[in-house]
Design a protein around this nucleic acid. Sequence first.
DNA 1: CTGTTAGCGCGTTCAA
DNA 2: TTGAACGCGCTAACAG
Lengths: 337, 337
Amino acid sequence: MVTIYDVARQAGVSPATVSRVFNGIKVTPDRVEAVKRAAAELGFVPNRNARRLRTSSSEIIAMMVPDIENPFFTVMTRAVEDLARAAGYSVMLCNTDDDPGREQEYLRVAVSDPVAGIILVPSTRTTDLSLPLERGVPVVCVDRRAPGGLVDSVVADNVAGAQAGTQLLFDAGYHRVACVTGPEQVETALERLEGYRAAYRANVRDEPPSDYVQRTEYTIAGGEAATRALLALPHPPDAIFAGNNKLASGVIRVLAELDSLPPAVGVVSFGGLPLVLLTPQGIMVTHLPPRSLGTTAAEMLLERIQGLTEPPREVVLPVVVGDEESGLAVIEGFTAR
Amino acid sequence: MVTIYDVARQAGVSPATVSRVFNGIKVTPDRVEAVKRAAAELGFVPNRNARRLRTSSSEIIAMMVPDIENPFFTVMTRAVEDLARAAGYSVMLCNTDDDPGREQEYLRVAVSDPVAGIILVPSTRTTDLSLPLERGVPVVCVDRRAPGGLVDSVVADNVAGAQAGTQLLFDAGYHRVACVTGPEQVETALERLEGYRAAYRANVRDEPPSDYVQRTEYTIAGGEAATRALLALPHPPDAIFAGNNKLASGVIRVLAELDSLPPAVGVVSFGGLPLVLLTPQGIMVTHLPPRSLGTTAAEMLLERIQGLTEPPREVVLPVVVGDEESGLAVIEGFTAR
DNA sequence: CTGTTAGCGCGTTCAA
DNA sequence: TTGAACGCGCTAACAG
């Protein structure tokens, strides 16, 4: 392995000078030239590990998401990577599958690396952040609020978005609007349910019947099961508010199977459907802003890495109805009314 | 920062013993116990940079893909991450956007890290691998063959797959089958074109007319433009073989716009369409095996990291027609016939 | 089995 | 502005 000592000898300078050249510290021009030539001849590549050990810094940002295969997190991750690279950082990808054990394992890896910072989608509202907190590794939570409000977070306005989404269904003339949302321990599921309830109350002047609220895993299968259950009720709903894109997929699939696609049964998906070529007519979508979430989280993390010491901040991004920020393709004339 | 020296003092042993405990090297049980307790009390987390510097090793695998937002690469990356984690490695995500400059930049980063190994989707057939090669960093190419055959690679059988896909259209009764594929410098585009040609020749007993072959960027916009061009021909095709999923999306969107979806104009997409909820009837899909590609590449890389010194290997995975390995959801009754 | 010692490659003092 | 010398935290070699 070629080191700064080899380069120094070849260039006839000291190792310290080589180091300075590679760190942009003032050195006489002709020496800079000599060092650069020597480095090129020897194929010198600086060893980042030595650098990191010495400076106890790193140029890696850990990105911890439930599952990169969910397009929502894919887009968010890509946004983070773009900003990170522009700032000279690399991104370490960690899929937690919303498993707190896996999450802690990754936090331990990130802390012992140690990475420059962490962007985290917390798996629960009680995720233990003491590992990074104790070691002073900055954390920014995204999509879900920081446990205990201990660190910065960037979230979408789930309550308002869900309320607006549910309202779309009432506005379209549906009356018996049900809700399929995620499990108890997931914060976004709770907030979206709250938004749904608010809209329901505002339109019906009553609480939704308890069997109109289905809570299940954030999966396609969960959406399917919940939809079957709803349609089997004595007084089945005539419209469904789906709490995320996977649930909506399940809802739509079952409705298609039962030949009950909109307008027979109205549907709103909270969060854009993944690259839908031909959105079935009448399905309405509330767009979450994954790219903005990622960009904002990355910006906030970079500020923290650069030493910002303000108390934890919370940014709430608006949820847009009918926006295309998510980059999803929708064909005119085939899209939602 | 708590170091092994702090733990050693607290536990009444030497730093080397602490190191041994954390590396699973034989130590008397009660000392192990003492070290573990001391470490827990002090909140000790080993510093990987120091370890890496000392052992000149790393537990990071660099995953270089054109764009993580393409579901094909998303799935592949997830497969890699799963295997990597199981083997104790982390994954560094690098989006090259098929830009050779970006690719070299990332290779430089990976080499100077230095990472344990690299999984690369080469942006061109002439990508320069000398950086990792000189520094002895193992590289496995995936989806596209290794430039110069210098390292291992795992690819799909594009020629046979494209031939089979095109054949589907002839079998369905179409006669004037056109092809939309990717740009010259991309190897997969070339191979898929070759498969298309073979199928065309076998059925028509002639070469396809030159204006039936459209070469464009692997983008939705490219697919759209190519489709418009094809349909504007004096003798327009009655079916289109699309060389990848993005092209197919463009094709389908234009056909939908012109009210010429199958069966009016037949379509085969090479590669699964991204989480298509309701695949328009009659669109046929040839499934690439992104998960297998990722898994195989990761396995081969791990072998290289462990010191395997065989000459470069090339694995060709079969392309399956009608398979669902890609994890894409297709509704029964709405899927391809 | 354990402790002592000596670097891994680099950045940063401190003097010159 | 430059070079010599030190040490980041850890593990490999050695001696005990």
